[in-house]
Protein backbone atom coordinates (compact mmCIF):
# COMPACT_ATOMS: atom_id res chain seq x y z
CA UNK A 1 0.00 0.00 0.00
CA UNK A 2 2.78 2.40 0.75
CA UNK A 3 6.03 3.61 -0.64
CA UNK A 4 7.28 4.55 2.79
CA UNK A 5 10.81 3.31 3.23
CA UNK A 6 11.08 0.61 5.81
CA UNK A 7 14.45 -0.04 7.34
CA UNK A 8 15.90 2.33 4.76
CA UNK A 9 15.22 0.03 1.85
CA UNK A 10 12.40 -0.10 -0.67
CA UNK A 11 12.09 -3.07 -2.97
CA UNK A 12 9.19 -2.45 -5.29
CA UNK A 13 7.27 -4.98 -7.36
CA UNK A 14 8.58 -3.15 -10.42
CA UNK A 15 12.12 -3.85 -9.32
CA UNK A 16 11.34 -7.52 -8.80
CA UNK A 17 9.66 -7.65 -12.22
CA UNK A 18 12.63 -6.15 -13.99
CA UNK A 19 15.01 -8.36 -12.06
CA UNK A 20 13.03 -11.43 -13.07
CA UNK A 21 12.78 -10.27 -16.70
CA UNK A 22 16.50 -9.58 -16.92
CA UNK A 23 17.39 -12.88 -15.30
CA UNK A 24 15.12 -14.76 -17.70
CA UNK A 25 16.56 -13.02 -20.77
CA UNK A 26 20.09 -13.82 -19.64
CA UNK A 27 19.28 -17.51 -19.30
CA UNK A 28 20.48 -19.55 -22.29
CA UNK A 29 17.55 -20.83 -24.34
CA UNK A 30 15.19 -17.92 -23.60
CA UNK A 31 14.44 -16.04 -26.82
CA UNK A 32 12.22 -13.33 -25.35
CA UNK A 33 9.44 -12.55 -22.97
CA UNK A 34 6.14 -13.00 -24.73
CA UNK A 35 3.66 -10.14 -24.50
CA UNK A 36 0.14 -11.48 -24.21
CA UNK A 37 -3.20 -9.86 -24.85
CA UNK A 38 -3.85 -10.12 -21.16
CA UNK A 39 -0.71 -8.12 -20.48
CA UNK A 40 -1.62 -5.67 -23.20
CA UNK A 41 -5.06 -5.04 -21.74
CA UNK A 42 -3.57 -4.68 -18.31
CA UNK A 43 -1.19 -2.11 -19.72
CA UNK A 44 -3.91 -0.16 -21.45
CA UNK A 45 -6.39 -0.43 -18.61
CA UNK A 46 -6.59 1.37 -15.29
CA UNK A 47 -3.68 -0.68 -13.99
CA UNK A 48 -1.48 1.01 -16.58
CA UNK A 49 -2.30 4.39 -15.10
CA UNK A 50 -1.48 3.05 -11.69
CA UNK A 51 1.81 1.79 -12.98
CA UNK A 52 2.60 5.23 -14.39
CA UNK A 53 1.75 7.05 -11.20
CA UNK A 54 3.21 4.49 -8.93
CA UNK A 55 5.82 2.20 -10.34
CA UNK A 56 5.21 -0.71 -8.08
CA UNK A 57 5.12 -0.72 -4.35
CA UNK A 58 5.99 -2.92 -1.47
CA UNK A 59 2.61 -4.48 -1.50
CA UNK A 60 1.16 -4.58 -4.95
CA UNK A 61 1.44 -5.93 -8.42
CA UNK A 62 3.52 -4.76 -11.34
CA UNK A 63 2.94 -5.96 -14.89
CA UNK A 64 4.95 -5.50 -18.00
CA UNK A 65 5.30 -7.42 -21.28
CA UNK A 66 5.54 -11.03 -20.26
CA UNK A 67 6.26 -10.46 -16.58
CA UNK A 68 4.13 -9.93 -13.50
CA UNK A 69 5.51 -9.46 -10.02
CA UNK A 70 3.64 -9.21 -6.74
CA UNK A 71 5.04 -8.59 -3.31
CA UNK A 72 2.92 -9.63 -0.42
CA UNK A 73 4.19 -9.40 3.15
CA UNK A 74 7.80 -9.63 2.09
CA UNK A 75 7.29 -12.63 -0.19
CA UNK A 76 7.45 -12.37 -3.97
CA UNK A 77 5.27 -14.02 -6.56
CA UNK A 78 6.52 -13.85 -10.14
CA UNK A 79 4.93 -14.94 -13.38
CA UNK A 80 6.91 -15.08 -16.64
CA UNK A 81 5.62 -15.73 -20.16
CA UNK A 82 8.54 -16.89 -22.27
CA UNK A 83 9.46 -18.05 -25.77
CA UNK A 84 12.29 -20.56 -25.91
CA UNK A 85 14.87 -21.59 -28.48
CA UNK A 86 14.02 -24.88 -30.16
CA UNK A 87 17.58 -26.14 -29.69
CA UNK A 88 17.01 -26.17 -25.91
CA UNK A 89 14.51 -28.30 -24.02
CA UNK A 90 11.91 -25.77 -22.88
CA UNK A 91 11.12 -27.52 -19.61
CA UNK A 92 14.79 -27.44 -18.57
CA UNK A 93 15.08 -23.81 -19.61
CA UNK A 94 12.06 -22.97 -17.44
CA UNK A 95 13.59 -24.83 -14.51
CA UNK A 96 16.87 -22.91 -14.85
CA UNK A 97 15.04 -19.59 -15.11
CA UNK A 98 13.12 -20.39 -11.94
CA UNK A 99 16.25 -21.29 -9.96
CA UNK A 100 18.10 -18.16 -11.09
CA UNK A 101 15.18 -15.83 -10.46
CA UNK A 102 14.65 -17.21 -6.97
CA UNK A 103 18.37 -16.97 -6.29
CA UNK A 104 18.48 -13.33 -7.38
CA UNK A 105 15.41 -12.46 -5.31
CA UNK A 106 17.11 -13.93 -2.29
CA UNK A 107 19.82 -11.24 -2.70
CA UNK A 108 17.17 -8.52 -2.25
CA UNK A 109 16.34 -9.71 1.26
CA UNK A 110 12.81 -10.53 0.20
CA UNK A 111 11.58 -14.11 0.45
CA UNK A 112 11.38 -15.79 -2.96
CA UNK A 113 7.90 -17.25 -3.41
CA UNK A 114 6.62 -19.08 -6.45
CA UNK A 115 8.00 -18.32 -9.91
CA UNK A 116 5.36 -19.46 -12.40
CA UNK A 117 6.50 -19.90 -15.97
CA UNK A 118 4.38 -20.21 -19.09
CA UNK A 119 6.13 -21.40 -22.24
CA UNK A 120 4.14 -19.74 -25.00
CA UNK A 121 6.34 -20.40 -28.02
CA UNK A 122 9.20 -22.67 -29.02
CA UNK A 123 10.99 -21.36 -32.08
CA UNK A 124 14.20 -21.21 -34.02
CA UNK A 125 16.51 -18.49 -32.91
CA UNK A 126 16.26 -15.52 -35.25
CA UNK A 127 18.70 -16.02 -38.10
CA UNK A 128 18.88 -19.79 -37.93
CA UNK A 129 17.15 -21.50 -40.80
CA UNK A 130 14.35 -23.98 -40.54
CA UNK A 131 15.07 -27.63 -41.02
Amino acid sequence: MSDQPLQGQVITSQLIASLAARTALETPGVLRLEPTIHGLLARLGPAALNNLRNPGSQNGTYRHDGVTATISDGTTHVHLDIATDITYAALNVAETVRERVRENIRHTALTPGPVDISILAIEHHHGTTHA
Partner: peptide
Protein backbone atom coordinates in the same frame (compact mmCIF):
# COMPACT_ATOMS: atom_id res chain seq x y z
CA UNK B 1 5.74 -24.58 -4.09
CA UNK B 2 8.59 -23.02 -6.05
CA UNK B 3 6.22 -22.41 -8.92
CA UNK B 4 4.22 -23.88 -11.76
CA UNK B 5 5.48 -24.56 -15.27
CA UNK B 6 2.99 -24.70 -18.08
CA UNK B 7 3.23 -24.80 -21.85
CA UNK B 8 0.69 -23.63 -24.37
CA UNK B 9 -0.83 -26.24 -26.64
CA UNK B 10 -0.02 -23.87 -29.50
CA UNK B 11 3.72 -23.91 -28.71
CA UNK B 12 3.70 -27.71 -28.74
Amino acid sequence: EEGTTEISEQAL
